[in-house]
């Protein structure tokens, strides 16, 4: 950048270029280390938005979580009672297990499928952009619309049931109301809905892997399998790390799919943590208890994220 600006003749070159970049010509010499207020001014609106719409609500919800706060009625300080109530509630334990179960099934499936498809969609595949768009469509269509279609697949007499009946002659289980199948059905739908984003991410990262590295590996006699795991995978590991993190965080917050497909049933077998928070807040109308639930979720996500960051040193390569 500095090379395009001709150095001024009356001053030593390095100072001149610094002046030009700083864009503050003037007779007064600036003291080193002094800050300009302009930075604060430009950061102001965002900082203010962050304070009003993020920091204040977070602190408020923490305060509310220590209070008995019915939607209408007397509010009062209850200390840790809400948390004690939560951990004493068998339904709360069930929803935590359900959420963890969903995450354990969904995240690996999502990553394997998205990475697999991204690896397959090399520039050598004809019309790869068509496939990319196809795989990405579920991610951009509204979940509510997807749910309507998936319900038609899952219903008794629906696509899966009817196909099995007419070909093999067996009846499919009633996926959405069968305890053993409901969560799997939701995971399947969620993976279909969610893998497109990661696939696009990984696909773009794979395209950016320098060709000379791959050529060098091929010249050394590496098989495609070796090339992928020894060259491409380490090269895109920061992207995979990012994708894994985001997928983990959003999957802990899963709500729409079970809420729309099963309403959390049968029983509580697909009720997730966020639905529990929603029900507690808006049906039982105990905002204090709901806030406590939200903080439990926050701590879980924080913990998982922290573990991920610690673990990344082992497999993420930034150079």
């Amino acid at each position: 950048m500095t090379s395009v600006i001709p150095p001024r003749l009356d001053e030593p070159a390095p100072t001149a270029s610094r002046e030009a970049v700083g864009a503050s010509p003037g007779p007064a010499k600036r003291e080193p280390g002094r800050r300009s207020w302009w930075g604060a001014v430009f950061a102001g609106p965002h900082a203010l938005g962050l304070a009003i719409f993020t920091a204040v609500p977070i602190v408020a919800s923490l305060v509310v979580s220590f209070m008995s706060w019915p939607m209408v009625g007397e509010r009062g300080w209850v200390g840790l009672d809400n948390y004690a109530d939560l951990f004493g509630d068998p339904v709360f334990r069930t929803v935590i297990l359900n959420t963890v179960g969903f995450v354990l099934l969904y995240v690996p499936l999502n990553l394997v499928i998205s990475l697999g498809l991204a690896a397959w969609l090399t520039p050598r595949i004809r019309h790869r952009h068509v496939f990319r768009v196809l795989f990405f469509i579920p991610t951009v269509t509204p979940i509510v619309a997807n749910v309507v279609v998936w319900r038609m697949l899952y219903e008794p007499g629906g696509f899966i049931d009817a196909t099995l009946e007419s070909t093999v002659g067996v009846q499919a289980p009633n996926f959405l109301v069968d305890e053993n199948w409901a969560m799997l059905a939701i995971v399947a739908m969620s993976v279909w809905q969610g893998f497109g984003y990661n696939m696009l991410l990984f696909s773009a990262a794979l395209d950016a892997v320098p060709d000379n590295l791959i050529e060098a590996a091929e010249l050394d006699g590496a098989s495609p399998w070796q090339t992928f795991w020894r060259i491409k995978f380490p090269a895109i590991s920061p992207t995979i790390f990012f994708g894994t993190m985001m997928t983990l965080i959003t999957s802990f917050q899963v709500f729409a799919q079970p809420f729309l497909l099963t309403k959390g049933g049968p029983g509580t077998s697909t009720e997730t943590l966020v639905q529990y928070i929603y029900n507690t807040g808006f049906q039982v109308q105990q905002l204090g208890l709901a806030s406590a639930g939200a903080w439990v979720l926050f701590v879980i996500i924080l913990g998982v994220t922290a573990v991920q960051f610690l673990g990344q040193k082992r497999w993420v390569h930034y150079d």
Partner: peptide, 8 residues
């Protein structure tokens, strides 16, 4: 949530 289990 629950009555589906009974009915089915």
């Amino acid at each position: 949530q629950y009555a589906v289990q009974a009915v089915n």
